[in-house]
Design a protein around this nucleic acid. Structure first.
Ligand SMILES: [Zn+2]
Ligand SMILES: [Zn+2]
Ligand SMILES: [Zn+2]
Ligand SMILES: [Zn+2]
Lengths: 145, 145
DNA sequence: GACGTAATGTTATACAATAACATTATTGCG
DNA sequence: CGCAATAATGTTATTGTATAACATTACGTC
């Protein structure tokens, strides 16, 4: 699968440490976003014992652009951008659509939308260093049901 | 002051209970967003003892549209929409620009980019029930300094 | 006054994140 | 290699955020 090859690449590019690789692995294998503590629970067998070990790995992974933090959930997801993590996106603005029924998270970036936000900021003299956009609701599958 | 009169009106319209009025009062009097626990600290003299008393009041105030929750801060602010709380805004989409130096929060609503978001959602079949937009950065005053 | 509903008070607990400190790899260089 | 700088790890304790569960009290309505 091409997407997996790409992910393996970016992972290698960043030379993930053991803990980072473990945490990233759990997130990659999960459909839904996960809290740091539930990640920890899945890594007890691998020797992780303390929340801090997970939080430290997450911090790096977020820096690398491999993982996103969802502020409205206090949870984390592996990057699932259509064009792959870091394809010019990792340092751009991303938006998330979070289904409250099935926990699916769709990730997207709309340049026009971002441009409009930037326009408002500029007019106000506000200098944004990060932008959080999270839609909560029902995904297509859960909407009809 | 007209703004205060307006706020008093909306407060009266909702017939705030004692605890709700106390919590709202603290938020109105604060420049920066406040956590539930720091609100509680300011209300010990008034008889409040437990976090739940504050959280319950906050839940109602958010429902009324008098208060907003900032997801990226785990904190709350009194509504400061230009046209006043509930001026057609309370059930619309609002965005926040949060200064990380002085803690000032600017609240704004841009119908155009809300429309654009809605367009994306519709195309994806996603039915949003709430939208979170938070810009983190430096406000005009802190930007130059 | 009896009933349903909403608000309140209280205690205990769950969940999320960081502080502080000791230890161990890794890397780059003289 | 020997050594210093840097980054990653491990561990314990603590702080901060939010809710569960249950008992009680006020309030509107018939
Ligand atoms: Zn991404
Ligand atoms: Zn869904
Ligand atoms: Zn508002
Ligand atoms: Zn500022």
């Amino acid at each position: 699968m091409i997407a997996n090859a790409m992910k393996a690449d970016t992972r290698a590019n960043h030379d993930l440490t053991r803990n980072q690789a473990l945490v990233f692995g759990v997130l990659e294998g999960s459909e839904a976003p996960l809290s740091a503590y539930s990640i920890l629970d899945q890594l007890r067998e691998d020797g992780l014992r303390a929340p801090l070990q997970v939080y430290r790995a997450l911090e790096k992974l977020v820096d690398f652009g491999l993982v996103h933090r969802l502020e409205s959930l206090n949870a984390f997801v592996a990057c699932n951008h259509p064009s792959g993590p870091e394809a010019g996106e990792s340092h751009g603005t991303v938006a998330f659509a979070i289904c409250e029924k099935c926990d699916n998270v769709a990730e997207f970036a709309d340049p026009d939308f971002v441009e409009r936000l930037r326009g408002w900021a500029k007019a106000e003299g506000f200098e944004p260093h990060s932008t959080i956009i999270e839609l909560r609701g029902l995904c297509e599958g859960c909407c009809v049901a």
